[in-house]
Design a protein around this nucleic acid. Structure first.
Lengths: 146, 146
DNA sequence: ATATTTTAAGATAAAATACTCTTAAATCTT
DNA sequence: AAGATTTAAGAGTATTTTATCTTAAAATAT
């Protein structure tokens, strides 16, 4: 459902948002190399994907020593759908599951009535969930995976 | 979410199931060429994908003149999940949306609590929906897309 | 100023997916 | 029996996605 690029990006954004709250990292740039290492991701792939998030204004970047990236908004203002939109685009949430160009309540495919509902629920989840929600879970659970 | 192969296969299975109910086609093999033409799909791609459905026992095939494919079960006994399982596999419904190998209620990722629910609802939809349900919609709506 | 660190950008490579083609095998028709 | 029709199977090609590499540009530190 999410591309690998989007998966990685969401994980990284959650990680960054969480780290940025800590005193030691507040308002500091976090090195992409560190993020990739800590999350077990490819530095190359991650920095490539970050370029889109920077362009989209979700991240600010800075080169040189002590450079890296940092969020441009508080975790409560960054929704998962914002990241998905930038990396994968929003097509999934508009498109017919059977691939029809025009598929709507008025002009449905054979399973539109079933899928449209599920699709909207997923969209709803991505729209409602912010990085702050994810961070809260980090605080709540002992052995949570970030 | 569904691969192109799976999309096409579901459409084709719905089409076949619907056609097989009609007197003229009852218990007859339907040519793959005809199916592809009627649905606007690639004959090559479709016949390739059908091979899996035949092997899996969802379709019976027959070569030579008046050959083709026909369903091995009534539409009410073929669920969408059966087709998805054969073509795409079932991984999607087991896997963590952030890609963690082990992600469960006991050992969750940061958005497991949200995603697991949606994922199960989708699974539920694919498990509950049969070809018969899709066919009923064809009968119900005038301009439905098949 | 120079060297070092770090991201940006574009090129390249590898892998996965989507799609097509060719030949073979089976079945039917005559 | 011969020819036509149709799916099976495997090889081949194209496209997209994923991943890596290289060079450049910017910033810092010395």
């Amino acid at each position: 459902m999410l591309s690998a690029a989007c998966r990685d990006s969401i994980r990284a954004m959650i990680y960054i948002a969480n780290l940025s709250k800590k005193e030691r990292y507040k308002n500091r740039f976090i090195s992409i190399y560190k993020i990739a290492r800590d999350l077990g991701l490819s530095f190359y792939f991650l920095s490539k994907n970050f370029q889109k998030l920077v362009k989209a204004g979700l991240l600010e970047s800075h080169r040189g020593p002590h450079g890296g990236v940092k969020p441009l908004k508080p975790p409560s203002k960054i929704r998962l759908i914002d990241i998905v939109t930038v990396i994968d685009g929003i097509d999934f949430f508009n498109n017919c599951i059977l691939g029809f160009e025009e598929c709507s309540d008025e002009n449905p495919c054979t399973i539109h009535n079933l899928w449209a509902d599920k699709r909207n629920q997923i969209l709803n989840m991505f729209e409602k969930t912010t990085l702050e929600d994810a961070i809260k879970n980090i605080e709540r659970f002992e052995n949570i995976k970030v």
